[in-house]
Amino acid sequence: MLLIECPWCGERDESEFSYAGEAHIARPLETEKLSDEEWANYLFLRKNIKGLHREQWNHAAGCRRYFNVERNTVSYKISGSYKIGEQGPVGDDT
């Protein structure tokens, strides 16, 4: 059970949050101009990183804000949380 720091509410139990997938996937602006391959890239392809992973979480049972977390997918260690639009932490890859 992770302990996740909501940038507003502080550290809370994982059961208050819902996972929202890989972070920093911007929706393409002129979608009609994209090739099928480019669109599929946006739609389906995810990095599935072993190691430091930037991911979105939603404090669903709390303040309902979405934010980003940098988490090591091997150790589950979270190196930091940051608001949408902010620069993330530079976590060590351990």
Binding site: S18, A26, Q56, N58, A60, R64, R65, Y66, I84
Partner: peptide, 10 residues
Amino acid sequence: SSMERWLQTE
């Protein structure tokens, strides 16, 4: 939550 997500993140 999907609509909030679009508004908050995109």
